[in-house]
Design a protein around this nucleic acid. Structure first.
Lengths: 189, 189, 189, 189
DNA sequence: GATGAATGAGCTTTCATTCAT
DNA sequence: CATGAATGAAAGCTCATTCAT
């Protein structure tokens, strides 16, 4: 089987791409990503067919990492408010300690380069959240609106919260409280 | 380079850039923008020193257009809720009838290419809104939070609203209502 | 009209390509062709859309040059033998004094890279010859065979003649005589 | 490097190279040849030191296959015309049933890539034919010309014949007759 | 010996910018 | 001032070859 494809190299490439895209957006060059990852320029293409596909995989990879950070310890039994707050605060925490990943996803999201199905695929790991929102809407706890719309609002307010905590870390707690307050009120009747 | 001769050409270039950036993001080429504007490749550079500055000016130009659409008929005398709703609905209306401009700004915002002061400059035309928010906070009508933070939340929810109306125009009214409901509740105590 | 496309540059590029292809075949690089022509790498692409099209145009260009060398002074009134000999000897002479062009066409012909219509287009300038062959067949002077087949045989024997004269210039006259003898006998009954 | 272990793999590589070169010329990649042969990319290089040498060996290999098809049943006792016709028709038959091999040799012949001695080596298996031509020249049956020149003419007319039969198989017999007629008349006084 | 991942020089092509016309 | 040809530094990607497995 000769030398097998190395998961370490693949991860190094994704990590390098994360930082490069966070810094340069889609203008990040494959050469710079390879260099950052410590592999030869050509090696990148044995792991990712081309730049576009690298970016799709990067997007999905980060979305999965985010899900892996948000979902554990999910308090299935708690009331909707506490469940949502768990998700919100974890999301914010992840964003704060993974600035590059967060920026990379933001850059990719806004940059046309995302292939059609990719955005939808990126939502899959968060089905538990969607399901919870759906139930809460059904039970009348949340405002009667399409799930995706509510999800979007939550995400946007969370992103805003992250940005402000990032800029003024001293006021982290206040912004986190303000943020969740805004979320909860925005989506309740 | 001073102020160039033909405002028509300058506007044609900005308009062409709007569409090009909406479609291709920062990967839009200066040649394609010039072609779209009906001028020669070199002409672009007599109106804009280089691509980066073109993008700054495009960003500010669109922000001003947005302000010009939002601010007229501003009901200075109405209560805070009505004043904010005026702004919100005008913002949404502008976004719906200026898809390219909206997308262009979104692409530029998310792509490193914006120079530092530019984002702040883009907020200037909306000082009346900021001022109103400030007063409302002071008077206790809005939640006690930094103005910029509240402004961000409003903007994000408005953008989300636009996106959903764009995708499902049949439900325009519902989303506009849901959107403003979310905004108002999000920022009130 | 700014700077107009320069026929000199275009010719320099075709000439450079002729020598490069004669020497390296289709492996000749666009960079080496541009360098030889004394223009920047990018300039090649303002004159030829891409490498493949450059090669098509080179092929046709050389074929036209060959026709321009062969057809003048064509003795319309002479008998078939003399008319054919005119063509044959001119063809050989051209091949001898245009080694690079001859080799380039040979390399391109054998290299798959020729687009479909190109080969046919390359024959167009030689319609007078085809017509003459056709008449001669009709009149029974030449063997009753498809024109294209006879044309091919003539061409191949001429090419062989050129090669041998090239290698042994001292025996030029003998090979030219032997060559035409072979041609004439090969295609007469 | 000596003689490698598996003649099957070596043959598979030569066969794969035959088809790849017939289709892509010298641009055929070693990877594609290895894939076609069903071996790993690296394996190619244990059988052939590098791409250039692979092509030399391919050229000689095909030339030997051709000789093996042409020479058997050679009618040593027959007169020159019949001996030559044997060779000619066998050559044409081989070309018709070995299109890829024929094309591969044509592509290689016309592409600089053939090392100097290789072309000469490729003629060795046809010494019986050369010898016969030499005798025929001596005896005055063939025109008094260098053997190689006559040989070239025969080869070129045979190649032309193959091409036309290939394109119009219905007229195979006619072209074979026309072809040999042309050969015999071309090289006889 | 066979495998195929790793390498990096080198290729074609693009593109922001300049400048002759 | 407008034009668009000219430039050449990259960019993305390929591929012959090597070498760890």
């Amino acid at each position: 089987m000769a030398r097998p494809l190395s998961p370490e190299k693949r991860n190094a490439l994704l990590l390098a791409a994360t930082h490069a895209v966070a810094e340069q957006g889609v203008l990040a060059t494959t050469a710079s990503i390879a260099r950052r990852a410590g592999v030869a320029e050509g090696t990148l293409f044995t792991y990712f067919e081309n730049k576009e596909l690298l970016f799709q995989e990067l997007y999905l990879h980060v979305k999965h990492e985010l899900a892996d950070a948000v979902m554990p310890d999910y308090p299935h039994q708690a009331d909707y408010r506490h469940r949502l707050e768990h998700v919100f605060q974890r999301y914010v925490s992840w964003g704060l300690s993974n600035t590059a990943a967060r920026l990379a996803v933001a850059r990719l999201s806004a940059s046309v380069q995302l292939l059609d199905g990719t955005r939808a695929q990126g939502m899959e790991p968060f089905q538990a959240v969607s399901g919870m929102i759906e139930d809460a809407v059904q039970s009348g706890v949340l405002v009667n609106a399409p799930i995706a719309f509510l999800y979007s609002i939550i995400e946007r307010i969370a992103d805003t919260t992250i940005e402000y905590v990032d800029r003024q870390p001293a006021d982290a707690d206040r912004y986190r409280q303000l943020g969740f307050h805004a979320v909860w009120r925005a989506i309740t009747p």
